[in-house]
Simulated assay, not measured.
Amino acid sequence: MTRLQGKTALITGAATGIGRAVAERFAQEGARVVIADRDGEAATATAAAIGAGARAAVMDISDESSVAAAFSALAADGWRPDVVVANAGVQLFGHDAPAAELDLDVWRRTIDVNLTGTFLTVKHAVRAMLAAGGGSIILTGSPTGLNGEGRDFTAYSASKAGIHGLARTVAAAYADRGIRVNTVVPAYTETSLVTAISSDPESRAAIIGRIPLGRAGTPDDIAGAMVFLASDDGAFATGATFAVDGGMTTI
């Protein structure tokens, strides 16, 4: 398991959940990993748990100065990333709502982190990769950005739809300079982000009932797909959307 040997990967939102699982799997595959998270203490703990091939970076993806400073510091230390996973995001359960009921502040907070934050991560990843001659960028999408799955989550769904469009545009713009951009779309995946669903048996059963494989996703399910896209095995994949959703998009 050394498909990422010699590569350096930065994963945002990597202190917990899907991001942490991806960082752990990348490290197992031989990569050096940067645990980028706005929670510096949690990022440091995750990096320590992974071991010598990991380091923490405090990064608030909604703040360009924070993103730029993190990328600059990594480059100065010889940790310029070959792979960037733009995974960090928020879902404001109890606040996000159908459009007519949605507070503007909730919309702005969600877009600032999920869409603008992903854009800023991609922007500075592209700059770093242009200097290095190429690389792989992987975005975390959502079925809510593709279909009516998120009808009660207007801001979140819109932010994820924007991410899908961003990935295709950046892939087209930089393919001739060796930069690949793809989106992985998990179905309902049980992490701390979705405690509002996982702690409610009725809500959990309803969403799992729409997954043909009959179970929730796990962070490890997503990590395997991202290893492929980060590795040379995925060298001909760009601008694509990879559903890892237990068949959810087939119904």
Score class of each variant (00 low, 15 high):
M1D: 11
M1Q: 08
R3E: 11
Q5V: 10
T8P: 05
I11G: 04
T12C: 11
T12Y: 10
G13L: 06
G13A: 05
A14H: 13
G17K: 01
I18A: 02
A21R: 04
A23G: 08
E24T: 09
R25V: 00
R25G: 01
Q28A: 08
R32H: 12
R32Y: 07
V33F: 12
I35C: 06
R38C: 14
G40I: 13
E41A: 14
A43F: 12
T44E: 15
A45P: 02
T46Q: 12
A47C: 06
A47W: 10
A49Q: 05
I50Y: 08
A52G: 13
G53S: 05
G53M: 04
G53H: 09
R55S: 11
R55Q: 10
A57G: 09
V58T: 15
I61A: 05
V67P: 15
A68V: 12
A69I: 12
A70S: 15
F71R: 07
S72Y: 04
D77Y: 03
G78R: 09
W79C: 03
W79M: 04
P81T: 04
V83E: 00
V83A: 01
V83C: 02
V83R: 00
V84I: 08
V85A: 07
A88T: 13
F93I: 04
F93P: 15
F93E: 12
G94V: 01
H95Q: 15
A97M: 05
P98C: 05
A99S: 06
E101F: 11
L102T: 02
D103R: 11
D105S: 14
D105I: 08
R108L: 02
F119N: 01
F119W: 14
F119P: 04
L120A: 10
T121P: 11
T121W: 06
V122P: 09
H124I: 07
M129E: 02
A131T: 12
G134T: 03
I137L: 05
I138M: 01
I138A: 00
L139R: 02
G141V: 03
P143I: 09
G145H: 11
L146Y: 08
E149M: 11
G150Y: 10
S159P: 14
S159M: 07
K160I: 07
K160E: 06
G162R: 11
G162E: 01
R168A: 07
Y174H: 14
R177A: 09
R177E: 15
G178N: 05
G178D: 05
I179Q: 02
T183D: 00
T183M: 02
T189I: 09
S192F: 09
A196C: 10
S198H: 10
S199D: 15
S199Y: 09
R204K: 14
A205W: 07
A205P: 12
I208A: 13
I208Q: 12
I208W: 08
I211F: 05
A216N: 11
G217K: 07
I222H: 00
A223H: 03
A223I: 04
G224E: 06
G224D: 04
A225W: 02
F228L: 12
A230W: 01
S231E: 07
D232K: 03
D233P: 14
A235F: 13
F236C: 00
F236T: 02
A237Q: 00
G239C: 00
A240I: 07
A240Y: 06
T241Y: 02
T241S: 00
M248N: 06
M248V: 04
M248Y: 15
T249E: 05
T250H: 10
